[in-house]
């Protein structure tokens, strides 16, 4: 489904702020894969997501999505097949527009054949109401209210719905429950797995929660310094305990620290 070949990205090249965020990274995801990604801050997880979503173009390498080469496709064109959620629940919705208007914007991804001068139709509204009901938050009765009135959890649930209302080929979840309280985080996570399973969406999810990284999905990646340093699935993954993963995580971090020390000494 997703094939990344040898991508590299350096920010601010040639300046003191030069930062090599991705170093020849390769990755292949099969259809329906649910992959969790762990790694310390600055390991390049979000940069990888930005590269896939098209927020910038990579310096080297190729990105293929479902057979199509998207390496040089701008972000708004990739968004037809890629849904994305951020840690900040405010990023995915327009606060001064109503729930219904937000959903119809997200639904634009499907309507390539519809005129830009057409209005939201009755069928669309019925579909939005039906999907909102599935969230179980009572939002279907507040469709005319501006999204700015919703709580962070409600907004994240709405963003999840918006990202998946047109089934994406790939869903990128960038620590999308990290800013929520534990109960709300659990609710969003349950909705996520439910929607992902229902439509068999290929999914990449960044998390800092080691037990989540192993319990969710079918494959786990660990990133450090712009590389993938651990890629486990199947039997090996089942055998790995949370403590083991945490241990490996610390080892990686320590190694980086040691490298820094060598540089600094």
């Amino acid at each position: 489904m997703l094939t990344i070949q040898n991508i590299s990205k350096t920010f601010n090249p040639g300046t003191v702020n030069e930062k090599c965020a991705l170093r020849g990274l390769s990755l292949h995801l099969d259809r329906g894969d649910f992959v969790t990604v762990v790694g310390s801050n600055g390991a390049g997880k979000s940069t990888l997501f930005n590269a896939i979503a098209g927020n910038f173009f990579v310096d080297e390498g190729r990105i293929r999505l479902d057979g199509q080469d998207v390496t040089f496709l701008p972000d708004h064109k990739r968004s037809r097949s890629i849904g994305r959620l951020f840690q900040d629940p405010l990023r995915g919705t327009a606060p001064h527009m109503s729930i219904e208007e937000n959903l119809s914007l997200a639904y634009l991804r499907s309507s390539s054949g519809k005129s830009p001068f057409s209005h939201i139709s009755k069928e669309d509204k019925a579909l939005f109401r039906e999907r909102l009901e599935l969230l179980g938050l009572g939002l279907e009765n507040r469709m005319q209210q501006p999204v700015g009135l919703l709580s962070g959890g409600q907004r994240q649930a709405l963003t999840l719905l918006m990202a998946t209302i047109v089934t994406p080929k790939l869903l990128l979840l960038d620590e999308h429950t990290a800013a929520l309280d534990p109960a709300t985080a659990e609710m969003i996570l349950r909705l996520t797995t439910q929607i992902v399973a229902e439509h068999t969406i290929t999914c990449l999810m960044i998390t800092h929660n080691m037990s989540q990284a192993l319990s969710l999905g079918n494959r786990t990646l660990m990133m450090a310094d712009g590389h993938i340093v651990l890629d486990i699935a199947g039997e090996e993954r089942r055998k790995l305990s949370v403590e083991n993963l945490a241990e490996r995580f610390k080892l990686q971090a320590k190694e980086l620290l040691d490298n820094d020390r060598i540089l600094l000494s």
Partner: peptide, 28 residues
């Protein structure tokens, strides 16, 4: 009338949350 159309909605979203416009497959 125009502000209620699909294009009008994306115009309104441009001023409200520009990231969301490109996430909806529209070029801001």
């Amino acid at each position: 009338w125009f502000l209620g159309t699909r294009l009008g909605l994306s115009l309104r979203a441009t001023g409200d949350n520009r990231d969301m416009v490109s996430a909806s497959s529209i070029n801001p």
